[in-house]
């Protein structure tokens, strides 16, 4: 599961191709236009590399941190089958992080540096995971709707231009389909259950709706970088388009269960074919992504502690004579 990479709008002034060799750039862009994949040792513009490292790294961090709110409910899952399924889902998410860290590494940033940047707060991860999973119903809503949003995003990105990222995403998308079905099953079970169970799932949905609307990020149709990033197939769809796609697929399914969403303006505009909604609170989004959310400190502290607790084992196993080279693909 994943949220869209956050691009700092303050850094939108300079061109992404400043200082690049025009011949090599043209050859590179022609290759992408022909649908060819770019491989790790191919020539690429410095900003292509930089944007991809940031995007894949944030994606990897999101998988790791995203397993924390869901992992909360493993010990208290209602029933053995659900416990097994949730453990399998969380293992998948951590596995996705491994695949993605490897893909980012092929671009030249070491795993150690990525983990350091996560723990120190320098790197971002999907904002939704800074909110708590208060009840079992939260874990159901996360598994269904956050993973649904992630699939919209990841399917788009799997058609991108960077070979190792595409290959990782293909594997990831195949596994996410189980997460989506599992999450839907859990939500439907609660929504068709006792009045107490319906109340629980409605409460979770109401609390998670604002983070879900934040999930695809602020509108980027006016961003000066979007055009270049789309030509390079780093970005495959605008944030607004992905949000629309998500709403179109899932709002009817939510309403079909007799559940409500906390936005009186949410409806499909029959003229435009698009969904109208109240603009999400982007000030809240910025506040949380910059460390002010309810769980930011906890998420990083848990991650840091895991790293510290495992350090003596890694140290005992380490042979100083080993040499590191970047993974091949």
């Amino acid at each position: 599961m994943y949220g869209n990479a956050y691009i700092d709008p303050k850094k939108a002034n300079s061109s992404l191709v400043d200082g690049e060799n025009p011949e090599k750039l043209a050859e590179f862009e022609a290759r992408i236009a022909r649908g060819e994949k770019i491989e790790p040792k191919d020539w690429m513009p410095a900003m292509y590399r930089k944007q991809l490292v940031r995007m894949i790294e944030q994606h990897a961090h999101s998988e790791i941190i995203g397993s924390l709110p869901e992992g909360t409910w493993i010990t208290r899952a209602p029933g053995f089958r659900r416990k097994l399924a949730l453990m399998a889902k969380v293992q998948d998410e951590v596995g996705h992080a491994q695949l993605l860290y490897n893909a980012a590494e092929t671009l030249g940033k070491s795993r150690e540096d990525m983990i350091n940047d996560l723990i120190s707060g320098k790197s971002k991860y999907s904002n939704v995971f800074n909110y708590p999973a208060k009840t079992w119903a939260d874990s159901a809503v996360i598994a269904w709707l956050i993973d649904a949003g992630a699939i919209v995003n990841q399917l788009a990105n799997s058609r991108g231009s960077y070979g190792p990222y595409c290959r990782a995403l293909e594997r990831i998308c195949a596994e996410e389909s189980f997460h989506l079905k599992y999450g839907h099953d859990n939500v439907v079970f609660l929504a068709t259950g006792t009045s107490k169970q319906r109340e629980m799932v409605q409460d979770a949905l109401t609390r998670w709706w604002p983070p879900i609307m934040h999930f695809f990020g602020p509108s980027d149709k006016d961003s000066v970088h979007s055009e270049t990033l789309m030509r390079w197939k780093v970005k495959m769809a605008s944030n607004d388009d992905m949000r629309q796609q998500f709403l179109n697929m899932y709002v009817p399914k939510i309403w079909d269960l007799g559940l409500t969403l906390p936005d009186a303006n949410l409806k499909k505009n029959e003229e435009t074919g698009k969904w109208d909604y109240t603009e999400p609170d982007w000030e809240e989004f910025k506040r949380v992504i910059n460390g002010g959310g309810p769980c930011n400190a906890e998420r990083l502290a848990v991650r840091r502690t895991a790293e510290e607790n495992g350090q003596w084992v890694r140290k005992a196993l380490l042979k100083e004579s080993e040499t590191y080279v970047t993974p091949l693909s």
Binding site: N102, E105, S110, R111, E112, I115, N116, I119, S120, A297, E298, A301, R304, E307, E308, Q311, R314, L317, L318, E320, E322, T323, Y324, V325, T326, P327
Partner: peptide
Amino acid sequence: NETEESVVLKKLDQFQT
């Protein structure tokens, strides 16, 4: 603890591939 000196991983902490 919430506020603690951040651990810094050194080169090869995550081994070779």
